[in-house]
Amino acid sequence: MNELFDLYQEIILDHNRRPRNFRPLEDHTCSADGYNPICGDSIKVFVKLEGENIEDISFQGEGCAISKASASLMTVDLKGKTLAEAQEEFKSFLAMLSEDEDFEVDFLEFGDLASLSGVRRFPARIKCATLAWHALEAALQGNEQTTTE
């Protein structure tokens, strides 16, 4: 059960129950649907850019605790960051999820996103954790849809 508690930490349960920035963004500059064909879950990410800055970011959709919490944590983390910073965050987030089990997650570096580090022990769930990030990437690239496949 320990690994499970690692996966479903309080912070994840909280973001699952009360997802932050869980709303459509009326004046978004771009948006994209992230879709996981394996489970049928989809998460739509809205972004409002001001030049290079992520002025506002939100999401909507259906998903498991992991995908919802990850989307919620992502929006909290990226609001106010620049595009370049967001790209860096995504890269290091993916890196964290591909580390092996003994990897010590740097909580200072990752902040609340570190709570998702337990996902790396559950390979079948990594796509849940990255769904919103892939949707964000698609939105920023001007695509309206992306899938985890």
């Binding site: 059960m1 690994e3 499970l4 996966l7 479903y8 129950r17 489970c39 879950d41 998903g63 498991c64 605790a65 992991i66 559950f122 079948a124 769930r125 849940c128």
Partner: peptide, 14 residues
């Protein structure tokens, strides 16, 4: 209620 099937499956798998 309030628990996604994926989360159910992960818990049962443990």
């Amino acid at each position: 209620n309030d628990v996604h099937p994926h989360d159910i499956s992960t818990f049962l798998d443990q």
